[in-house]
Amino acid sequence: MGISIIEKLFEEAKDALFLIEENKCIKQNKMAITLTKVYPFSLEKVLEIARGEGCRLHSTMEKCLDCEVKADWDQAAFPLILQSAQGQQEQFSGSYTEVGQQALLSIRRVAVQDRLQQVIQNKRLIEYVNQAHENERKALSQELHDGLAQSIYSLMLETRQLKWDEQAEGLEAKLQKIDEDFVALLGEVKQLAVDLRPTALDDLGLIPAIEALLHRLTETTGVVVHFIPILETKRFPESVETITYRVLQESVMNSVKHADVDELWVTLSEQESQLLLNVRDHGRGFDFEDVNGRSRGLGLLHMQERAESIGGHLAIQSQKAEGTTVTLRIPSQWEVIK
């Protein structure tokens, strides 16, 4: 008997097709054979992912913990990254359809248009980062001009006035006032230096730097911060410490500025080989659509960009009148610095 039209369509399909029965492949087409030769992979693992029983980010569902990937999973089109025998990685898209006791797994290479769209998105992200850095430079320039420069100019005028003042009356009080102004100016310089790069982060590490930041926040705003570090004090690579610190700094300042709270809860821990930062408040909360395009929306995007730059993941949950929780996860793809 000749080959039926359906069998011919199956065999000549441009996608790699796998006919599955009882968790085993009972038939595959030409593209599937070629795919498995170039990109050897575990069919069992791909089937777990296809059925939502596994996750791209975690090896078991116990580790997945209802993460965002699982919540948004779609069997009709799920992403895959396969690695060739030479170690080259390639993006694919899979689909999984069950019919009775059998199922059809389809895998196709991500279209050039999709990769081009990713390139465009990356370019836009780079443009945003550059603009964010430029905004930071402008803010620093404004701070130097309106703050330090004006204070120095004022002290300069006061000292010149003493030089030409022939009367000694009140000289001691004037000198005392100038001394106090110099102390205040020095404090401004130190605070500016801390904001640019906290010395505690370089000298002592992440936990002491966070403690110093939160202590200063409480002193200046009155907001009580409950910090619970659930890990031993140790050093991580500079990029991990810096980004964790900056995400925390942005998160707590957002809560202080917008959430109308008098208490915050911060935890830092290691779970499932991940560094986990959690910042929680019970304040006003917000709607993500309401902050798009505004300065706060840019702040959230900046935090997300920082996290993704080292392979981390930032999750923000917020509900009006219920509060906000910011969670940063950084996979342990680093060597702990002794």
Rank of each mutant, 00 (worst) to 15 (best):
L35C: 05
L275I: 13
S95I: 00
N130G: 09
A77W: 00
S4V: 00
V252P: 01
I228D: 15
E22Y: 06
R137W: 11
A111D: 12
L264W: 04
I310A: 02
K190A: 11
F286H: 10
T221D: 01
Q113T: 08
Q142A: 12
D195E: 14
L301A: 15
G205Y: 07
D290I: 05
K27I: 06
R115G: 05
F182I: 15
S332L: 10
L140A: 13
Q167H: 10
L217F: 08
T327M: 01
A315V: 01
Q319V: 10
P331N: 12
K27P: 03
N278Q: 14
L125D: 12
K177T: 13
V224W: 14
L57V: 10
S106I: 07
D281C: 05
Y128W: 14
E250Y: 03
L231T: 14
A200S: 15
F10A: 09
L148G: 00
T244G: 11
Q117S: 04
K24H: 09
Y39D: 09
S59W: 01
P229D: 03
K338S: 15
L35G: 05
K234M: 15
E211C: 03
M156H: 08
T244Y: 12
K45Y: 14
Y245Q: 07
L314N: 00
C67F: 07
L19N: 10
Q271G: 09
R160P: 01
S251L: 07
E22D: 04
V183P: 01
S93E: 05
R235G: 08
F236A: 03
E232A: 09
E188I: 04
I337C: 09
C64H: 00
K63Q: 13
S151N: 06
R160D: 12
P198L: 01
F227P: 10
G87F: 02
L35K: 01
I20R: 00
P331Y: 03
I26T: 07
E90W: 06
A132V: 09
F286D: 00
L217V: 08
Q113F: 06
A149L: 12
I178L: 02
D202M: 08
T324M: 11
F10H: 06
A259I: 00
N278E: 14
W265G: 06
P198D: 08
S295W: 06
I26A: 00
A32G: 03
D146L: 02
I81N: 03
V279Y: 02
Q102Y: 04
D260V: 15
S239F: 08
A111R: 02
